[in-house]
Design a binder for these strands. Structure first.
Length: 296
DNA sequence: GGATGTCAAGGAGAT
DNA sequence: ATCTCCTTGACATCC
């Protein structure tokens, strides 16, 4: 593994700081939100954001220049505008501080986002994605794929081609800033989207493709890893962010689901001579990368 | 404090 | 019909 030739990052959780209760995904169930409302949502959001700043600074001190932030910083974000929160001033100040740090931040909103959906499903997707984009706006980050907001296309609704066309059509409903940030990732199951499928989207709306090595190994379509890598690589207008993880079934637990990610990292990453950033999606988070570096 | 049942959202696959 | 998973288990309640 040549970690020196690429920028390594990880996703959402920092295990080194967790014992100190530094975490960014405080939330609540519906009942509590109904009972406690905006003031409590604001309190949790402020704590999440303040801890995000601590995690970002930890990353910089430890040589990480890439980090995927949690898409659950704001509990029940779909139910209010950020600016209406009681702690908005503090939240905004902290977000600006985070945005000023020398690190590439990305987002990966959840599987409920179905940009090819219709009706209420599409409405909910637009609300969530615009919220995530607003976070980057508040951080003062210029809209570009440098700070990607990455999603999967989602369901196929029994017709991949028609669904991809709907995705492209609904893409035009997004704000300019969000359109400048959005990327799509290849899926791990045969019924879903390969790099080749996503290339159609890139050709129609210019959206870059995030290449996930592990997903490709489970759902390669007709492409070799190198072909898929290069196909995705050529869709980017800035240095790409790709995803890597190892198979839990293959390396740690033969009974695990084939899609399950391993706790640690085992395989070399081939970047085919290109300069890319990689988010390592191993369950042991930054510890897996630190172990590879041979550091303590 | 620790154990346990529960938890917004969409879709796909397994049981 | 019901459950589990997904980018990341955490929350609420009971003992």
């Amino acid at each position: 593994m040549e970690l020196t030739s690429l920028n390594a990052g990880y996703a959402c959780i920092n295990l080194s700081l967790q014992p100190d209760k530094i975490t960014t995904n405080r939330g609540m169930i519906k009942k509590t939100f109904t009972e406690k409302g905006l003031p409590y949502a604001s309190e949790l959001a402020l704590k999440n954001v303040q801890d995000l700043l601590k995690i970002v600074d930890w990353n910089i001190e430890h040589g990480f220049r890439l980090f995927r932030i949690s898409s659950d910083l704001f509990p029940w974000a779909s139910e209010y505008r950020i600016a209406t929160l009681p702690d908005y001033a503090d939240i905004r100040e902290t977000l600006e501080e985070i945005g000023s740090r020398p690190i590439r931040l990305t987002l990966h909103p959840g599987p409920f986002n179905q940009l090819a959906g219709q009706g209420r499903v599409l409405d909910n997707t637009l609300i969530d994605l615009e919220h995530q984009s607003e976070l980057f706006d508040l951080m003062g980050l210029k809209p570009s794929h440098w700070n990607k907001i990455n999603i999967h296309v989602g369901g196929t609704y029994g017709d991949k081609i028609a669904t991809l066309a709907r995705f492209a059509k609904n893409f035009s409903l997004l704000s300019e800033n969000l359109r400048a940030r959005l990327t799509v990732e290849n899926d791990d199951r045969q019924s879903l989207y390969t790099v080749t499928d996503l290339l159609i989207l890139h050709e129609t709306i210019g959206i870059p493709i995030v290449f996930d090595y592990f997903h490709h190994s489970l759902n390669p379509g007709q492409l070799t890893e190198e072909d898929a890598f290069m196909t995705a690589y050529n869709t980017w207008d800035v240095r790409p962010v790709f995803h890597f993880s190892d198979s839990r079934r293959e390396h740690e637990d033969p009974t695990a689901r084939r899609e399950a990610h391993a706790d640690w990292l085992y395989s070399p990453v081939n970047t085919y001579g290109k300069d890319v950033d990689i988010v390592f999606e191993s369950k042991m988070k930054e510890l897996a990368i630190v172990r590879l570096r041979g550091g303590a």
